[in-house]
Write a protein that binds this DNA or RNA. Structure first.
Length: 215
DNA sequence: GACCAGGCACATC
DNA sequence: GATGTGCATGGT
């Protein structure tokens, strides 16, 4: 066992599940949209909404920005919370246009922490959404923390269950090699076992990681 | 039919 | 500052 427990856990998750190839999305902009739509929502539902946007050929900043809100609501409907998500997507588009002229490249040039602060000022973008955009759309070295991360690692008594979001993020970032590819796939692996393993194995002893260490 | 999903903002105490 | 609640669809 390595002295770096978090890295060791990752290696086993990776060995067990293979490269998750996250984020599922063809372009950085699609990743950003998906990050907003997946808030407290099953990804299968988000896919339906994304697909609506693709079929309508509007999965581009300028085209979405020009779309009427009523139409946007219809496209987003299958992802749930569609009224509020329409507003949130619009808020993001306003920010993306006014601050970056819809340019992903301009965004990438900004320092990760500075950009994180900017994103958090957008109504509808919280920490997980901001970090997903930073890591998966822009390739920044920011570890994404979600409900599965907190649940799984607190159940293993590796963190306190009510440790604040940024404390968890720093805890991972301090212990892991500062490599975008590791942050990327680690979070993806956590989500994989979170939904695939836990849900299908309710009697796993409340420990999603346990099977990795006992088999 | 209950329960959950890759959160977030806002109200209230 | 902590705790509670609305938001809504679709799968299990």
């Amino acid at each position: 066992m390595s002295s770096n427990l978090l890295l060791e856990i990752y290696k086993r998750l990776r060995q067990d599940g293979g490269d998750q190839k996250w984020w599922p999305g063809d372009t950085p902009f699609e990743v950003m949209v998906g990050a907003i739509l997946t808030q407290n929502t099953a990804w299968t539902n988000v896919e339906k909404a994304i697909n609506n946007l693709k079929l309508a050929k509007v999965l581009h900043p300028k085209k979405l920005d020009r779309a009427p809100l009523a139409q946007l609501r219809v496209w987003l409907k299958p992802s749930g919370f569609f009224n509020i998500k329409t507003k949130r997507l619009k808020h993001f588009l306003d920010f993306f246009k006014s601050r970056y002229q819809f340019s992903v490249e301009k965004m990438k040039r900004v320092d990760a922490i500075a950009l994180r602060h900017e994103l958090l000022l957008v109504n509808g973008i919280g920490k997980e959404t901001a970090d997903s955009i930073l890591l998966y759309a822009l390739g920044k070295k920011i570890f994404v923390v979600d409900a599965y991360t907190r649940r799984i690692f607190s159940r293993h008594n590796l963190i306190e269950k009510d440790l604040p979001y940024d404390d968890i993020r720093n805890w991972f970032e301090k212990q892991l090699p500062a490599a975008q590819e590791i942050y990327n796939d680690y979070h993806a692996q956590i989500v994989r076992i979170g939904k695939d393993y836990c849900r299908k194995n309710p009697d796993c002893g409340r420990c999603p990681l346990e099977f990795l260490f006992h088999k």
